[in-house]
Computed example of a mutant assay.
Amino acid sequence: MQLRTCGTAVLIAAFIVGTAGTATADPAPTGSIEGKVWFDRDADGRINGVEPGLYLGWVTLSDRYGNYITGTQTAWGGTYSFPNLAPGVYQVDGKQYNYGFSTPTTRRVTVTADKLSTANFGARGGKITGRSWKDLNANGIREAREPGFSAGIGLTVYNGATTMNADGRYTIDDVALGEATLQSSDGYEGGRMYTQSPAHQGTDPTRDSDFEQGTGRGPTFTFQLGPNGSVRPTTPATADVGYYEAHNTGTLTLTPDRDTTTLHVGGTVTFTGTAAFTGNALDTHAIHSTGSPAGLIFTEVTSTPSWSLELFGSDYFSLRDSFFRVPPPTVTFTVKVAITAPTTGNLTITIGGGIFFESGPATSVTTPINAT
């Protein structure tokens, strides 16, 4: 019994000592890899202050033998990160398959415990250049006296960054491989609308406008990978666009179906009108009310062809067509008005005159109203 007791005591003591001596191991130290994918516009392999990062690029991490581990998208500014990596050698791949490159696309990076390792990747895109000018005589040919025009203009292409200078010269950088189609929008200056000049006029292709009149669609360029990771167009990527001041004017007639000076509360009056636009604007034609006395409510407004109707409360309406009709259209319309209270005043309906940025003088028809 004593030997057994002694043996048991020895075993218990050994267990207690062993338990007391056990400690939780600290986690193994790790390091990380961070970096940036940026548009290396001067292809010098160095990041400078004006070169932007590539947003939503893709960077992958592999082990030292090239076995894929994980991947990540670049954040706004082109940055990425692979945290909590065990010390060792890794491969980081920053090749962007829709762009060229200015640096090696794969880098071997050694991760050291508690240290940050860096791998940056330079991407290269294509470039489109051109100029926008104010076409004073609207003939689609850039002449020496005609100034550059940059007010309110948008020259866009998918995956491209546009810089517009005050003299109308523009550059679109960072254009992706493949096809790139230019698109221009209307310009606005001093409350007046400017639209695209006629395209491909004259005999000098360096002085004409290259964008479709009305739609604003420009040429399509194809970019492909060139020497040393460059991105080159298959044809010279330059396009100009002329703008002229667009006058949205015309004639307007308006006929009521009854005497508007002897109306009564609870009754209605219907106006039938025709608007014939004769200006040189190609889009955003509108018919709208510019004044009505209290006690009148617009209850129904229709047009042929059918235009978009916008009602602002019950005392203002606008019929608008923004679908690039060439030449300017003629539209017939009806306006039904309900009399809800005794009133005296004038009902005015207008085309042109600056609504929705149409340039040119307004054309209006005013009808006297008297209701008891």
Score class of each variant (00 low, 15 high):
Ala239Val: 03
Gly266Ala: 06
Asp204Gln: 01
Tyr244Trp: 09
Val231Gln: 05
Thr220Lys: 09
Thr274Phe: 05
Tyr243Asp: 11
Asn228Glu: 10
Asp257Ser: 06
Thr272Arg: 15
Gly216Ile: 14
Ala246His: 12
Thr274Met: 07
Thr253Trp: 07
Ala237Met: 04
Thr270Ser: 05
Leu254Met: 13
Ala275His: 07
Thr215His: 02
Thr261Trp: 08
Gln213Gly: 12
Val231Trp: 07
Asp259Cys: 01
Gly202Phe: 10
Glu245Arg: 15
Gly202Ile: 12
Tyr243His: 06
Pro227Met: 02
Phe271Thr: 09
Gly216Cys: 07
Gly229Ser: 01
Thr203Trp: 02
Leu263Ser: 04
Tyr244Cys: 08
Val231His: 04
His247Met: 11
Thr235Trp: 13
Arg232Asp: 14
Thr215Ala: 08
Phe211Met: 13
Gly214Trp: 12
Glu212Gln: 14
Ala276Cys: 07
Thr262Glu: 15
Thr206Pro: 00
Phe221Leu: 10
Thr261Ser: 13
Phe211Glu: 11
Gly266Tyr: 09
Ala246Gly: 12
Thr255Ile: 04
Pro233Lys: 04
Pro227Phe: 01
Thr255Ala: 06
Gly214Glu: 13
Ala275Thr: 08
Asp259Leu: 03
Gly214Arg: 10
Asp240Leu: 11
Thr249Met: 11
Thr251Cys: 00
His264Glu: 14
Pro256Thr: 02
Ala246Thr: 09
Ser230Gln: 13
Gly266Pro: 08
Arg258Phe: 00
Pro256Phe: 01
His247Ser: 06
Gly218His: 01
Thr238Trp: 06
Asn228Gln: 14
Thr222Trp: 10
Val231Tyr: 08
Gly214Tyr: 12
Gly250Asn: 11
Glu212Asp: 11
Leu263Trp: 06
Thr234His: 05
Thr268Ala: 00
Leu254Trp: 05
Thr255Gly: 00
His264Val: 10
Pro205Val: 10
Thr253Phe: 05
Val231Ser: 03
Leu263Tyr: 04
Val241Met: 05
Thr215Trp: 05
Ala237Ser: 11
Gln201Leu: 11
